[in-house]
Design a binder for these strands. Structure first.
Ligand SMILES: [Mn+2]
Ligand SMILES: [Mn+2]
Ligand SMILES: [Mn+2]
Ligand SMILES: [Mn+2]
Lengths: 220, 220
DNA sequence: TAAAAAATTTAGACTAACCTAAAAATATAT
DNA sequence: ATATATTTTTAGGTTAGTCTAAATTTTTTA
């Protein structure tokens, strides 16, 4: 039996909310993420449990089964590969591709995914720095720091974003911050935790805590 | 209001069955093409008529309105552009792409289509020789001949196929007949109308009437 | 041109995915 | 340890798209 568009979305969202430690996901959290009501979520959870895709005990929240995890990772692989295609081949901005990839990720056909992957040169990361699962379903989350964890004087590489909202990505564009940028923290304001950060050895910018919390970086 | 996946399919099929002269399409023909029952078609026709996408009078068959035609042509444009992408960029065979394009054709986003079109170099024909509507919705069907209309001694160019079935396309592959092949009709068998056809000045093959009827060609 | 056949529509149901409102279970706070 | 608040589930409905069976209209045949 094939999984529906909707079922795939639930699995993907459970995967995201469950995190690497596979913590239980609540009905309300899913209602929020799927933009539906808790009652609708309960209906779907019963269905996904019947299909063996999630572990579900009433009132106890859900986690993915191995089978559900597999499906979720396939969808994530497709989503991220299509995002690479849209940015690298079609010339979209990284702020424009998420919604289109939300649709493309549900196109079936294993062979399509593998040919796309080859066409793109087997990329390891998507345009937002998120890792792309391999064909076998291995997904390894690199352990990046958040910019707020970086001390004054340290130089780090910008590796990804936590917030994928177009407005946030556009803000980074205007600040000249892209994947691979070198960020040196020059000063941290005691009062509001805003930071002065030098970008690629060039201009120094003020970065609010709100922005710092969403920047994934790596020591060099 | 957006049109659903299903509505788009109905419009596309009505367009195909209605032909260039815009003849009425019957409920049964649509049931056949959509692999549904006549009663289901009637339901959908009422809906499409309510949305102003088709002309529908009970028992009289349907035709597209200008508005419905526009939608149908957009879907056809997307279908054929994606087929070009799959063959030219991903390396699929022309016999493998139709079903995948059936899914991709429903991905929304005008800008995606236009960027894809540009990426592909604004192709005029899809891998089966079918013309690709332009961004404004102009679709001009070239008036090709069918191979059965070609007389002995004539040389023609292979320009397209009427049957898109994988088995037919694979048969052409095995015969060495592709878009652009030069076909010279050497002999036509009186009894079964099979033809001896020389391919690209090379080997001469027997071609059954069944095959001839599905080959679109052009005099040079 | 009336009867028979074929095509089409209507009537009544079903499933997937959603909803609101009410009931039940769990968690929190006095 | 209750009472209150929060979360989750259940009950009962809706819509889109499908179905079968029956009724109706159109077409064909005699
Ligand atoms: Mn995304
Ligand atoms: Mn991404
Ligand atoms: Mn096709
Ligand atoms: Mn085609």
């Amino acid at each position: 039996m094939q999984n529906s568009f909707t079922e795939e979305n639930y699995l993907k969202i459970i995967h995201a909310l469950s995190g690497r430690d596979g913590v239980e996901v609540s009905t309300n959290a899913l209602a929020e993420s799927t933009s539906t009501r808790a009652a609708s979520v309960t209906d779907m959870l019963r269905k996904l449990a019947d299909k063996g895709l999630i572990h579900y005990k009433k009132y106890q929240g859900v986690t993915l089964t191995d089978s559900g995890e597999k499906v979720a990772i396939k969808v994530i692989r497709k989503h991220r590969l299509w995002e690479v295609f849209l940015v690298e081949k079609l010339g979209f901005g990284w702020d424009e591709v998420h919604d289109i990839a939300e649709e493309l990720e549900h196109i079936p056909s294993e062979v399509l995914v593998e040919k796309l992957d080859a066409f793109l040169g087997h990329p390891k990361f998507d345009p937002h720095g998120d890792p792309i699962p391999d064909a076998k379903g291995n997904l390894t989350e690199p352990d990046y720091l958040i910019l707020t964890d970086v001390h004054v004087g340290e130089k780090v590489l910008m590796m990804g974003v936590l917030d994928h909202a177009p407005s946030f990505l556009q803000h980074l564009d205007r600040s000249g911050i892209t994947l691979g940028s070198v960020l040196e923290v020059r000063e941290i304001n005691e009062y509001d935790k805003s930071a002065s950060v030098q970008i690629n050895g060039g201009p120094t910018l003020f970065i609010s805590l709100e922005v710092s919390k969403n920047l994934l970086v790596q020591r060099r």
